[in-house]
Design a protein around this nucleic acid. Structure first.
Length: 1043
RNA sequence: GGGCGUGUAGCUCAGUUGGUUAGAGCGCAUCCCUGAUAAGGAUGAGGUCACAGGUUCGACUCCUGUCACGCCCA
């Protein structure tokens, strides 16, 4: 006996039970153990920041990261799945700052880096429990016990090793980075922090003339515009856009010659009469022109004081020529660095001018604006002066304006790796392909050196110790052992507050660690090595299992994890770090906007799971374009739909099986291998097809395509196989056919569980648990994925069935059209097809058609002329290339071919047609024959198949129709009375003569269908009788249970 | 501003190497069936395939441009 299925099933509750079962039986661990000696399928988990609760993006990625490993495990691989936690970086620092009430870097330093870092450490695990709960609830199998944390000492030690490898390759260098800087706090801020306090301010906006040297016009000057006059003493270049149009003009009032962008003329002159255009230039033509330094503090600076070109220049404001002070602007820095202009920074830590600029020494930079403007005016260099109101970032803590300036930074040289990275990327299989071939490849082709240092606290430290006397003298540490050896101290923790205390004394020199920590992307990119503590441990295992077979993350990781993995694996091993990658798109709210806690525009994930179940949510997400990097508008209705559309029908099929198997006492031991019934062979073939389709798609990592065939299969199973086979399970005699039916449905349901197991692990398990025998593995997930599909497929039979289904569909359409309800039997149906072979195929399945459409006989034939007319249509695909431009003329000719001509062509003859004086021979391949039902007949035509219904009714048919009507009403009454399916009854009825005759003529049928021991004309018992309407005849019926 | 992607029915999405009647589900309407019952089935209405050009005998599909949206970068 199978376990009875409760009449009301709650999928979420069922899932909770399965989670409990897996926990008790330790199924995940078992699934690993049974594969221990098999080939590894290597999966890397990209570590999430656990600074909040998981959202749909995580659930989606988690589902993908579950399905593929589950599938690969069932395909016979050992798939270890270690969860990863990203512990370092700003998100967690922000939480710690909040908890400690510290508003910025100086406050942290003041409170003590040790206090702060320990706070971070204690908070990392804050959400771990919730994460584990949700991830587990989604059905994801992942190892939380052997997880890796980026803050673990072994992990951090490997980070040092990775860094040292780059160092050895001379790939690490120090340069600058332009960052927002708080002069009040003496510290750089992250761009993230700077973005949180914008204020509207007024700044001076001045236009300055820069005297051009050796220009074709005398006394000519380029005009530049700036809102930061204090950066002008540090001006080292000016920049024009290469494609922007510039003009040299003569100011009619001052007779001076100015160069500026043509598009900006109107900003400086109200009328065209005020100037004369001398000549036009492209920005590229101005490139290289020298000019006289605005101030002479740095007049000797290398390569300086020339016009440069860059695309960043716009003509939206200013003059179209941009002043460059490389120490104070990101573009300035980048462009000047490319050309080899060393930066100058005459400000001290407080942003006060130093002696390098003696005129303004001691003045705070912004306060010097006035004096600088005055000096410019004095020197005749100021052309225009105004003020501008704009929004500008301020320091959160001190409410003082931030200064963008060059900060010391560490870089990894990446630009020379571009070609190797591109080559390595070619061997990666991306899903979808364009992300790798276009998006990622483009990004690699233009890769910039990677800034890996952060002026923060909670992170892996840059393992470089610098000679306090000579900053160019540095020692790179590659292991704990080495640091202990050089410092003579025991090293227990690699965080900043520990290692900063460690000094190295060597040859009488003292070395102190550089204060920066590493970008946490450096850690995620090092994860393949660091999670294994490579090369300190697991050396062989790592090397045998690198790169990973599979990773999966969101599209936003193109420049994140995917990139850093590629940079480091290319630098260290000249290989990609992963062979296959699935890129998912973003999950949006139903309104197409980002999900927002504030707007509450999305349903809480937990609520959705508890309402519809994780399987439904998994299916919904996977069966959508979001697994192909497109965005998904998540809708609760969609989740509901996947439940109703796939899970419920599947469950109903299973429930049907259990109900009848238990009634008949059928058990798997009674299973037989024979399949005499074509329906049985057909559904097994369908299952085999499903198996093939899913395997194909999964091997391509195409998840959406893996789910799609389930829809068709569930349809086949429920709406054709079971519906058409129900009677085989109901019939009372326990014959061979019935046993085969049970055997088939059992096999199919069991097979379906296995194929669906990676996608819907819960319902698959639930059904499996009830179906499995003692000799089968304890869990569906411990099975091998079915792969014997080829043997079970019968494509001929599948084709036959498709035609039968088409015939039935046409019959249904005709019944609907002629308002003949299915309970009314019809005498005859015509199925006509001039393809005898095809017809023969259908004929085999005659009973399916007659049964389904409730017709007494099906007449098969090859001559459709009585039912339909035929017409020829051109076969465009065939004729198009043959006729070319004559095609249009040929269409009406072919449409009007006579029946005789069509018959001749289809008989294999060729028929000549006149086209523009040319004769064209039409062959059977050139035309398609279309059949049109004759008017006034119940006929339908589709392709080669013509179906006709005999709509004539006689007394006999009407009587049978009434009997069926009678059965239907009685069955409804049984249900209303809540009778057991197997309960026997007695029927008493009273009605007119026609009904009486109908009932008595079909008494056996009625009693058989309704499980009645008697069905007799009886006096009406007013108490227990129900008044029925049988096709217009009234009838009183009373039903009583018969022992 | 740049790279990539997306735009097909009211909604969510399919649509094979270009072939003339562009499909499915949901929703809606009408009907059917009900011993699978949180069911199931059929039929119908609903589309200038974002827009504009081009290539072609023929374009949802290929090319160019425009617009809208998304992701990343600047």
């Amino acid at each position: 006996m199978f376990k009875e299925i409760p009449s009301k099933v709650s999928f979420p509750e069922m899932e909770e039970e399965i989670i409990q079962l897996w926990k008790e039986q330790d199924t995940f661990r078992k699934s690993l153990e049974i594969r221990e000696n098999d080939k590894e399928f290597v999966f890397y988990d990209g570590p999430p920041f656990a600074t909040g609760l998981p959202h749909y993006g995580h659930l989606l990625a988690g589902t993908i990261k579950d399905i593929i490993p589950r599938y690969q495990a069932m395909r016979g691989h050992y798939v270890s799945r270690r969860f990863g936690w990203d512990c370092h970086g700003l998100p967690i620092e922000a939480l710690a700052q909040e908890a400690l009430g510290l508003a910025g870097a100086p406050a942290i330093k003041e409170a003590g880096v040790d206090v702060f870092n320990e706070q971070c450490r204690s908070m990392v695990t804050k959400y771990v429990e919730e994460w584990e709960k949700t991830v587990t609830r989604m059905g994801r199998w992942v190892d939380f016990e052997n997880d890796y944390k980026t803050m673990d000492t072994p992990f951090m030690e490997t980070i040092w090793w990775v860094f040292s490898e780059l160092w050895k390759q001379d790939r690490v260098y120090k340069a600058h980075r332009i960052m927002p800087y708080s002069w009040k706090l003496n510290t750089p801020l992250s761009n993230f922090e700077a973005g949180r306090n914008y204020q509207d301010v007024q700044d001076p906006a001045i236009t300055v003339r820069v005297k051009l040297l050796d220009f074709e016009f005398e006394d000519a000057a380029a005009l530049i515009w700036t809102t930061t006059p204090w950066t002008l003493p540090s001006n080292l270049a000016i920049c024009a856009g290469p494609d922007i149009d510039y003009v040299a003009i003569k100011d009619k009032e001052t007779h001076q010659v100015f160069v500026l962008a043509q598009a900006r003329l109107s900003a400086y002159y109200k009328k065209e009469e005020e100037y004369e255009i001398l000549k036009s230039y492209k920005g590229s033509e101005l490139k290289g022109l020298k000019y006289e330094p605005i101030f002479d503090f740095f007049a000797d600076n290398e390569n300086s004081f020339q016009i440069l070109n860059d695309d960043f220049v716009s003509t939206e404001d200013g003059t179209g020529i941009v002043h460059m002070a490389p120490a104070y602007g990101e573009d300035d820095y980048r462009i000047c660095r490319e050309i080899g202009i060393p930066l100058v920074d005459p400000l001290d830590d407080d942003c006060v001018f130093t002696a390098k600029v003696p005129d303004y020494e001691g003045q705070f930079c912004k306060d010097a604006d006035k004096a600088i403007i005055k000096a410019l005016k004095h020197g005749g260099k100021l052309i225009h002066q105004s003020t501008i109101q704009h929004s500008y970032p301020f320091c959160e803590r001190t409410d003082t304006p931030l200064i963008y300036r060059a900060i010391d930074a560490w870089y990894v040289r990446v630009e020379d790796l571009r070609e190797r990275m591109l080559k390595n990327n070619e061997s990666v299989h991306w899903t979808p392909d364009y992300v790798g071939e276009k998006r990622f490849a483009n990004w690699l082709a233009d890769a910039k050196d990677w800034n890996i240092s952060r002026n923060r606290f909670w992170g892996s430290c840059i393992p470089v110790w610098v000679n306090v006397e000579d900053k160019s003298d540095m020692i790179c540490i590659d292991s704990i052992e080495k640091l202990e050896e050089l410092s003579g101290q025991k090293v227990t923790d690699l965080h900043k507050h520990y290692v900063d205390e460690i000094l190295i004394e060597q040859d009488g020199k003292t070395y102190k660690r550089t204060p920066e920590v590493l970008d946490c992307w450096f850690e995620s990119g090092s994860m393949p090595y660091a999670q294994n503590h490579y090369p300190f441990e697991n050396k062989e295992h790592f090397e045998a299992n690198f790169p990973a077979d599979f990773i999966a993350e969101g599209l936003d990781q193109t420049r994140g994890w995917f990139y850093t993995l590629m940079v480091l694996s290319t630098a260290l091993h000249d290989k990609p770090a992963f062979k296959n990658v699935v890129v998912n798109g973003m999950v949006l709210a139903e309104d197409g906007l980002k999900m927002s806690k504030r707007l509450k525009n999305y349903p809480d994930p937990t609520l959705v799971i508890n309402k519809y179940g994780a399987d439904a949510l998994r299916l919904y997400m996977i069966y959508s374009p979001v697994v192909r990097a497109e965005s998904l508008r998540l809708s609760e209705d969609g989740v509901k739909n996947s439940l109703r559309h796939l899970i419920l029908p599947w469950w109903n099929a299973y429930s049907f099986f259990i109900t009848y198997a238990n009634i008949d006492g059928w058990t798997p031991e009674q299973s037989v291998p024979e399949r005499d019934n074509l329906m049985d062979r057909w559904i097994q073939s369908s299952l085999a097809r499903l198996e093939q389709q899913v395997t194909d798609a999964m091997d391509r990592y195409d998840l959406q395509a893996s789910v799609r065939p389930f829809v068709a299969f569930i349809e086949d199973l429920t709406n054709w196989y079971i519906r058409r086979s129900r009677r085989r399970f109901w019939k009372t005699e326990d014959d061979n056919d019935k046993v085969q039916a049970y055997s088939t449905l059992y096999d199919v349901l069991l097979g379906l569980c296995k194929i669906a197991a990676p996608f819907t692990p819960f319902i698959s398990e639930t059904i499996y648990q009830n179906l499995k025998t003692d000799v089968m593995p304890d869990s569906v997930h411990l099975n091998d994925f079915p792969t014997a599909a080829d043997a079970k497929r019968d494509e001929v039979l599948e084709g036959q069935m498709a035609v039968v289904m088409s015939a039935v569909e046409q019959g249904r359409t005709l019944r609907a059209e002629y308002k003949l309800k299915n309970r009314q039997p019809l005498a005859k149906m015509h199925v006509v097809c001039d393809d005898e072979k095809l017809l023969g195929n259908i004929q085999v399945l005659e009973s399916l058609i007659s049964d389904e459409l409730n017709v007494r006989a099906v007449e098969f034939g090859t001559d459709s002329s009585e039912l339909a007319t035929i017409q020829a249509k051109p076969n465009f695909k065939q004729l198009g290339p043959k006729l070319g431009p004559l095609m249009k003329k040929a269409v009406p000719l072919i449409n009007s071919l006579t029946d005789e001509q069509i018959a001749a062509i289809s008989a294999g003859e060729t028929v000549p047609v006149e086209l523009e004086g040319k004769s064209v021979e039409l062959t059977s391949a050139d035309i398609e024959i279309v059949r049109n039902p004759k008017e006034g007949m119940a006929v339908s035509a589709e392709g080669a198949l013509v179906v006709g219904l005999d709509t004539q009714l006689n007394d006999d048919l009407i009587a049978e129709g009434l009997a069926r009507e009678f059965v239907n009403k009685v069955q409804n009454l049984r249900k209303e009375m809540d009778l057991e399916i197997t309960q026997r009854i007695s029927i008493g009825f009273s009605s007119d003569e026609e009904i009486e005759t109908a009932v008595s003529n079909h008494q056996n049928y009625i009693e058989g269908e309704t499980l009645a021991v008697a069905c007799e004309k009886a006096a009406v018992d007013v108490e227990n009788c129900t008044e029925l309407d049988l096709n217009g005849h009234s009838c009183s019926v009373s039903i009583t249970a018969a022992d």
